[in-house]
């Protein structure tokens, strides 16, 4: 995404390297801080690919000249293409799923406790996001409020998902008399006979 974000920043106005780094930090909300090295590497690649061009500019006599970058027509094309493509939001490689699968299969983790801990964390995040949303009530903060609102909605979905897992384990627990996996923490990886545990394929 760094490349596309840089193209977007340069579509606004020509900028030099450091301003681009500051612009990125603002855009990403410091969610994943970008280091200067990453920015310059990306710039070099994009210049080589003909998406941007740098021109040496003298700012004042005391300081060395700096390179100010601008978008080429190819760069603008590439940016337009990115704008036109939807962003991929579906992630089926989910760490929580992997964790539950392995907890079940190995018998080394208590699935009910894993679901509970995940929900407790999600609820705390929900509390924090709610407080954040209350902070962004001003006109200038509408975009940030929407960013937080999006996180709230995702979290709501996560919580609903956890309830489905809970139901699944409750059903199985009834059948098996409610024992938890952690309680049978044997040395060999217990086979769980009838229930191989969740995983793709098997």
């Amino acid at each position: 995404m760094i490349k596309e974000a840089l193209l977007g920043l340069l579509a606004g106005k020509p900028m030099h390297g450091y301003d681009l780094k500051v612009g990125l930090d603002k855009l990403f909300g410091r969610a994943s801080p970008v280091n200067v090295g990453q920015v310059y590497t990306a710039i070099a690649k994009m210049e080589k690919a003909g998406l941007i061009e740098g021109a040496l500019v003298v700012r004042d006599q005391q300081r060395p000249e700096t390179k100010v970058y601008h978008l080429t027509p190819a760069g603008l094309d590439s940016l337009r293409q990115w704008f036109a493509e939807p962003v991929e939001r579906v992630d089926l490689r989910d760490e929580f799923f992997v964790k539950l699968s392995l907890a079940q299969r190995t018998g080394r983790g208590d699935v009910a406790a894993i679901v509970r801990a995940q929900r407790a964390a999600a609820l705390r995040d929900m509390q924090e996001l709610t407080a954040l949303r209350e902070r962004f009530q001003g006109e200038q903060e509408v975009d940030l409020r929407l960013l937080v609102e999006g996180a709230v909605l995702h979290l709501e979905a996560d919580l609903a998902w956890l309830e489905l897992w809970e139901k699944r384990f409750a059903r199985r627990g009834d059948k098996k008399g409610g024992t938890s996996d952690a309680k049978r923490d044997g040395l060999h990886h217990s086979s769980h006979g009838s229930d191989p545990g969740l995983s793709w394929g098997g």
Binding site: D25, G29, R30, A31, A121, R124, D125, Q127, E128, L129, L132, L144, L147, V148, A151
Partner: peptide
Amino acid sequence: ARMGRLAARLLG
């Protein structure tokens, strides 16, 4: 310890 984590990520 956890409170403020998301704010810090968003606002630095």
